[in-house]
Structures are given as C-alpha cells and as structure tokens.
Simulated assay, not measured.
Amino acid sequence: MARHNHFGSLGEDLAVDFLQSLDYEILERNYRYLKAEIDILARKDDLLVVVEVKARSSGHLKPIAETVSKKKIALLVMATDNYIVLKHLEVEVRFDIITIEKTQTTYKMEHIKDAFYYF
C-alpha cells in the first residue's frame, strides 16, 4: 500500500475512534455508490452523520477543509441519498468533515460539524 494510502486509512481509523468516544454509532466505512465514496456513515441520536475525512502532513498553505470540492460534495449527496433509500431511513442528515494534520510527532484533529449543506 502506498504511503499516502496508509496515512489516509490511519486518518479514518483515528476519526472513527474519535467519533466513537463521543458516542457516535459507526454504521459504515468506505460506503461506495457508483463513483462516490463516503468515508464514514455514523448515527448520533436521530441524526445520520456523513463524514468526509481529510488527512495530510503539515506544511500546506490551503486549509484542509477547503480541499473538499463541489464535485465531491455532489457525489457525497448522491451516495447519501442512495444509502437512505436502500436502508429505508427517515432521518435528518448532517455533513461533517474531520481533518487530521500530521506534524513530525503528533496529529491535530478538527471536527467541523455542518461543514456544508446539500441544497
């Protein structure tokens, strides 16, 4: 596995651990529909939380959360709609981003709730 893929997977593991520590129920990881992939689908109370995980090393100029494109958002919404229909869910949906930035020896994590809206 390429080094960046390994770090991305580690980032998702850290995000899952973080969410579980806050009593989120993890429903799916790496849910795929057509060309879309949702990193984490979780449930918190009566809310379906769609989580995009962005992990990278420090030293970039652009904030990590700003790297989620309009195209990626459209794909996330499409896959979420598919998941809701497939599972016959009647829930409110929230789209979050968890950013993980690696420095030499530590990880800095930020959880951005309601990172974007789907309408």
Rank of each mutant, 00 (worst) to 15 (best):
A2V: 05
A2R: 00
A2E: 06
R3A: 03
N5I: 03
G8C: 02
G8S: 11
S9G: 08
L10T: 05
E12D: 00
D13W: 03
D13E: 11
L14V: 02
V16A: 06
F18R: 06
F18N: 04
L19C: 04
L19W: 02
Q20K: 15
S21A: 07
L22R: 10
D23H: 14
D23S: 15
E25T: 15
E25D: 12
L27H: 01
E28K: 14
E28Q: 12
R29K: 15
Y33K: 13
Y33G: 11
L34S: 13
K35R: 15
K35T: 15
A36E: 12
A36P: 11
A36K: 09
A36S: 15
D39I: 03
D39N: 04
I40D: 07
L41P: 09
R43Q: 14
R43C: 08
R43N: 12
K44F: 08
D45F: 02
D45K: 11
D46L: 07
D46A: 05
L47D: 03
L48S: 02
L48A: 02
V49P: 01
V49N: 01
V49T: 11
V49A: 10
V49K: 02
E52Q: 05
E52R: 09
E52I: 00
R56V: 02
R56K: 08
R56E: 08
S57L: 04
S57W: 02
S58F: 05
G59I: 00
G59D: 03
H60W: 00
K62R: 11
E66T: 02
E66N: 09
E66M: 12
T67R: 08
V68Q: 04
V68C: 08
V68H: 06
S69M: 03
K70A: 13
K71V: 11
K71N: 10
K72A: 12
I73M: 13
A74Y: 06
A74S: 13
L75H: 13
L75M: 15
L76Y: 09
A79F: 08
T80H: 10
D81C: 10
N82M: 00
N82G: 08
I84D: 14
I84V: 15
I84Y: 01
V85D: 14
L86F: 13
L86R: 15
K87P: 08
E90T: 15
E90H: 14
V91D: 13
V91N: 14
E92V: 01
E92A: 13
E92Y: 07
V93R: 00
V93D: 13
V93P: 06
R94H: 09
F95W: 10
I97C: 05
I98R: 12
I98S: 01
Q104C: 01
T106I: 09
T106G: 00
T106L: 09
Y107F: 15
K108H: 08
K108P: 00
K108E: 03
M109G: 05
E110I: 10
E110G: 00
E110Y: 08
H111F: 12
H111A: 07
I112S: 09
D114E: 14
D114T: 06
A115D: 05
A115W: 07
F116E: 03
Y117H: 11
Y117Q: 07
Y118P: 02
Y118L: 04
Y118T: 04
F119T: 08
